[in-house]
Amino acid sequence: MPSQIAIGAAVPGCAKVDPILIADNVRRQFGGNVAVDVEHVEIPRGLITALIGPNGAGKTTFFNLLTGFDQPNSGDWTFDGVKLAGVPAFKVARMGMVRTFQLTKSLNMITVMENMRLGAQKQPGESLLRALIKPLWKRNEDAITARAAELLTRFKLDAKSDDFAASLSGGQRKLLEMARALMTQPRLVMLDEPMAGVNPALTQSLLEHIRGLKNEGMTVLFVEHDMHMVRNISDWVIVMAEGKIVAEGPPNEVMKNPAVIDAYLGAHHDSDLGTEKQAKGN
């Protein structure tokens, strides 16, 4: 673990030594409700950051805003120095900021391998005219297939390669979605509840995969309710409540923060930080 992540004290919105994503005054209202109102937040590069908070804290909405799947009422944010406000989702993904979804979006009626291939960027065969002439994209397709096969093996999905994604279990779909995201060769991977609905037997391997991403130099930002997982793998934890960032810090310190306990207890009296799985939702 790097000795220094934040510059100065770990207060909400604190500056980081090497941020990859910086958001300012991002605000999203639904009718009269303010879903997200983040004054300032920075995500440290090359580390695993957890975004936690009670249900309805605005975590997924914040994800959607950052990745261009929803438009904020106001706000600015940059990814590696590039302004992202108003940039459509597909361009955000092309820049190397890829996300997964809370409700897994495996493309059920195409095969696992096709799911994987879809993740690859800059494919010549994806242009309408070049698609008609196979020699123009055959070589690229072979390269993609090789890379996909490698990833599938790593994620232990190689045996399922030619099956429809619909035949996978919930946990396998989560794995597929993550593997597919990696096909885009991202710099920042944003996982929305990677553990939700995953069979406990698969939990450990999922954790290993997420650590693996960090080891390969990627930055990971994930939303999670499972506090064990948060403690286990994250280097930094950001806590949201009622749309705002209420606390930040290394996992062990954040869990002791009274603001965090308040936020959770205020929302759910039966919450037990770190000992019980939270009900899924948001």
Binding site: F90, K105, L118, G119, Q121, R180, T184
Partner: peptide, 12 residues
């Protein structure tokens, strides 16, 4: 199947 998923993979 799911246009948001495809969008998240960088396709227009």
């Amino acid at each position: 199947e799911d246009e948001d998923a495809v969008r998240s993979l960088g396709k227009n």
